[in-house]
Simulated assay, not measured.
Amino acid sequence: MTRPTDLSVAEARAWLGDADAPVVLDVRTPAEFAGTHIDGALNVPVDLIERSAAEIGSQLEGEVLLVCRTDRRAHEAARLLAPTIGGRGHVLVGGMTDWDEAGLPVEQGEGGPWAMERQVRTVAGALALTGVLASTVAPKAKWLSGGIGAGLLFAGLSDTCGMSKVLEKMPWNQRDDAPTVESVTRELAQGAASH
């Protein structure tokens, strides 16, 4: 049966229960994955795919369901893997946000930091507020708030976020057991052998 490239939560849930269930790659950060994820998902952060798409893609057999918090990073991962896996990449539209809202089962980890979008909103808000408050004493501080506003506008228009790239590198978003190309390819090979 041919599946669409973009799958709703209901379509993905039904497929995961079938005999031809796809491999589930969660492309969020290791810290986000540690909090909660779809049972059986393999964490392969999109930045790892950016660096090693061909090597990771060459290990993927069968259909692949890509998952992130919404679906932006999953679509990016699908684009990066397409030269290697072709049309076998599928994206969970709405990602873990819609999956959670539907009340579908998840595997709970030991917890992790806030979701990246929440971290970005918090830091951007704090910097904008700081700029406004500081401008009462030092008028040029208003440009901090203006810069944050311009950055958010650019992020919205380009569908990219430089602040999230910076925040991903922060210590609270790092894990000692973060996936590597070697660990991912090993897990994919083990999964293929068990089928």
Rank of each mutant, 00 (worst) to 15 (best):
S194A: 12
V9Q: 01
G94F: 13
M1I: 00
E182A: 15
P139T: 11
V27N: 10
R69T: 15
M96L: 09
L42K: 08
A14V: 04
M96D: 03
S145L: 08
T97E: 12
A126Y: 00
A155C: 02
R13K: 15
I148F: 07
W114I: 14
E182W: 10
A54Q: 10
G86L: 09
S194G: 03
T185E: 10
A19C: 06
G191N: 13
S52N: 08
R186A: 15
A14Q: 06
T29P: 13
S58I: 04
K140I: 14
V91N: 06
K142L: 12
T130Y: 07
P83S: 07
E110S: 15
P105A: 15
F33R: 13
P179F: 09
V181G: 05
M96F: 05
R73A: 11
L81K: 01
L127K: 00
V64R: 13
L188M: 12
L127V: 01
G89Y: 06
Q174T: 12
E32V: 03
L92S: 06
L65A: 05
D176L: 13
A21C: 03
P30D: 11
T2Q: 14
V24H: 05
I56R: 05
L81S: 04
W99K: 13
S135R: 00
L42Q: 11
R175T: 08
S194R: 08
V27W: 10
V181D: 04
V64E: 11
D20G: 10
A155T: 02
A124E: 03
V46D: 09
P113C: 14
G151H: 00
D47H: 11
P139L: 11
I85S: 11
A115K: 14
M116K: 07
G89L: 02
A102Q: 04
S52H: 14
H75Q: 06
G57K: 03
W99G: 12
L104F: 15
S183R: 05
E117R: 15
D6G: 01
N43H: 04
E187P: 09
G151K: 00
L157I: 07
V67K: 05
A10Q: 09
L42Y: 08
L157P: 01
E11I: 06
D39L: 11
P45E: 05
V93W: 01
M96T: 07
G87I: 02
E107Y: 03
V132L: 07
F33G: 14
G87L: 02
T2P: 15
W172R: 02
L25D: 05
L60Q: 02
E107D: 09
G57N: 03
A21V: 02
Q119Y: 01
I85G: 12
Q119D: 02
T5C: 09
G151Y: 00
I85Y: 09
E32H: 06
A19Y: 03
A193Q: 11
H37I: 08
A21M: 03
F154C: 05
C68Y: 03
D26W: 09
K142G: 01
A19R: 10
V93E: 09
G125R: 07
A193I: 02
L42E: 08
L60G: 05
A78G: 09
C68R: 08
H90F: 05
N173K: 02
P171T: 01
T2M: 13
A102S: 07
T5M: 10
G162T: 03
P83R: 07
V91M: 03
L144A: 04
L60S: 02
K165C: 00
V44I: 10
W143M: 00
D26H: 09
S183M: 07
